[in-house]
Amino acid sequence: MTVTRRHDGELHLNRRAFLTLGAGSFLGVVASWRHATLQSPDSLPGTGPSGRLWDPARAGRPLEPVTTADNDAVIRAIEKQLHCTCGCNLDVYTCRTTDFTCTVSPAMHEQVVDLAAQGMTGPQIIDQFVRQHGVAILMAPPKRGFNLAGYFVPSLAIIAAGVVLTLVLRRWARTAAPDPVPARPLAAAGTPEELERLRGELDRLSV
């Protein structure tokens, strides 16, 4: 709501003018109150006072208002698979929503939105980016050719090592196992005095 006051000149008021002003301001307050209650529910784009900042340069690069495409789940899913080329090592979505000084990721975002608006599907858009920039544009290498080694060598190595380990352990266990319970006579060899001493030693150890 805007309020204007006249400070220039003298204040001449007759009765009628005074009443008009009173009624006007009442209506104004009511109108603005209604306006306020209307505004508060949820975002009404384009409403509300938004004054200029004292020094906009301090707030970084000027941004565009958020559109529905920016929050679109499909767009977001696509962008999370694309690597931002600004050198930040992040995906396009994370970069554009984190490093607001970056101009590369918003441009790539624009391109994704444009391609989607042309009716291309997610995989098609991604293919388009790969054609344009090479496979390094993908956050994870595609699963084909040598890249399969990237995905499966660790798991295969672990499985192979696990199998070898199991076999080795089994052999170790077998070579060590052959005495089921032959130890009884062995231990009985201890004289009562020795056993007593062993007991003493054990009592000193705390577990």
Binding site: D179, A183, L186, E194, E201
Partner: peptide, 18 residues
């Protein structure tokens, strides 16, 4: 059973060490 076997074995070892 495991307890007895292990017990025997390590008692023997401890006695030998002592």
């Amino acid at each position: 059973a495991d307890y007895d076997a292990l017990k025997n074995r390590y008692t023997a070892e401890a006695l030998t060490a002592l």
